[in-house]
Design a protein around this nucleic acid. Structure first.
Length: 379
RNA sequence: GGAGGAGUGGCUGAGCGGUUGAAGGCACCCGACUUGAAAUCGGGCAGCGGGGCAACCCGCUCGUGAGUUCGAAUCUCACCUCCUCCGCCA
């Protein structure tokens, strides 16, 4: 193939030289025409084979990191550590939907009227609390953890969705627009990581640490009937996301640090949680290793996932052609990581259920008060 | 949405069918001059993939993709992005 192309290149130059001298080159031209036809045929074959191969590769999941435990489902996840103690109540703790409704801060019936089931509407102090959480989390990550704040688009094209691994396999999990080839972001991971798609980064730019607040949209296809009450599993929720782009050498350490950054949110709010290392079977398609942060929610009597911190290693970087130039000047796939820091909906659940009092009012954590004009409770 | 214009190396900017992978400038690197620096002068300097111990060699790349041609940065078509003006609009 390359040899044929080489011949065409060389002899075409000769044709040019002959013509420049005013000589006849029709014999050479005829020969080259044949060569060009051969090249075109081979080229088409090669392209087709490569396209087929790449399409198939897009469906191959990321192999788990060696430190990931075996196992098919959540039962095999390993608890790594636990922080805080579940609160002791001298009354029966209520679930968040009862608390929220009584306080007039959560209006699920009207949200269903506007959009449908699986949507929430917060009101008054509930809405105000979101604004406080947003400021609190972003300040924590930008001021204490060294992340740069990003405010990205949330309507996403197919290339970006493929880059982070949502497409082509998970198209049915996402909302698509009817008239434009765009998708609603299921997580800020997509727009934020894809900011660097098709780039070659210098080692001295790394690690890149970004955080972003965005709404997130998920169809939750296939999870019908699960967690249908309240605001545990909804189609639209808000999230502060942490994203890192690192060299292959440092991604593992950066992953651990990212988990700690997410934990810092829960610690500052005083919410009891545990860190779970997911087993191979419970991890997503893209991750090489993943920790979940699960916060204790006494009202629903369950540990709820408020953050999922993944190291994708080179998986996403290869899909999005994101590379790092190493010391020898070679380009290698970067490593990408992300984790929620943290998701709002379930955080609300945790705040309401953990800090509820017998009379149905809610005590607000100290750390949030500067963001709430000093307010200490919702009642 | 309508009408125009533009996309070339890290940046800028020429080229508009035939040794052009691409002039010039800036930036950068090496060297000379200098006590040092600046200025000046000389030299070097695109990326990706493949082959070789190496000197080097080959292929691809001028927004993307198709096409015309023996040969395309240069011609044709489609798409994408950006800019200007009009309309609409938070």
């Amino acid at each position: 193939m390359d040899a044929l192309k080489n011949r065409r290149n060389l002899e075409s130059k000769e044709v040019g030289a002959l013509k420049a001298k005013g000589q006849d080159a029709s014999a050479e031209i005829a020969a080259m025409k044949q060569v060009s036809e051969q090249i075109a045929a081979l080229d088409a074959q090669l392209r087709e084979a490569e396209t087929t191969r790449e399409e198939k590769l897009l469906y191959v999941p990321n192999p788990p990191h060696p430190s990931v435990p075996d196992g098919a489902a959540a039962e095999s996840n390993r608890e790594v550590r636990r922080w805080g103690a579940p609160p002791a109540f001298d009354f029966a703790p209520k679930p968040h939907w009862e608390l929220g409704e009584k306080l007039g801060i959560l209006d699920l019936p009207r949200a269903a009227k506007v959009s449908g089931s699986g949507f929430t509407c917060l009101r008054g102090a509930g809405a105000r609390l979101q604004r406080a959480l947003l400021g609190f989390m972003l300040d924590l990550h930008t001021q204490k953890h060294g992340y740069t704040e990003i405010w990205p688009p949330v309507l996403i094209n197919a290339k970006s969705m493929t880059g982070t691994g949502q497409l082509p396999k998970f198209a049915e999990d996402m909302y698509a627009l009817r008239d434009d080839p765009l998708w609603l972001a299921p997580t800020a991971e997509v727009p934020v990581t894809n900011l660097y798609r098709d780039e070659v980064l210098r080692a001295d730019q790394l690690p890149i640490k970004l955080c972003a607040y965005t709404p997130c949209f998920r169809r939750e296809a296939g999870s019908a009937g699960k967690d249908t009450r309240g605001m545990i599993r909804v189609h639209q929720f808000d999230k502060v996301e942490l994203v890192k782009i690192t060299s292959p050498e440092t991604s593992s350490a950066e992953h651990e640090a990212l988990v700690r950054d997410a934990e810092a949110v829960l610690q500052a709010l005083g919410l009891p949680y545990r860190v779970m290392l997911l087993c191979a079977g419970d991890m997503g398609f893209c991750a090489a290793k993943c920790y979940d942060l699960e916060v204790w929610c006494p009202g629903v009597n369950a540990w709820l996932e408020v953050s999922s911190c993944s190291n994708f290693e080179a998986f996403q970087a290869r899909r999005m052609n994101l590379r790092v130039k190493d010391a020898e000047g070679r380009n290698r796939a970067a490593h990408t990581l992300n984790g929620s820091g943290v998701a709002f909906a379930r955080l609300n659940v945790a705040l309401l259920e953990n800090f509820q009092r017998a009379d149905g009012s809610i005590a607000l954590p100290e750390a949030l008060r500067p963001y709430l004009d000093g307010r200490a409770e919702i009642r």
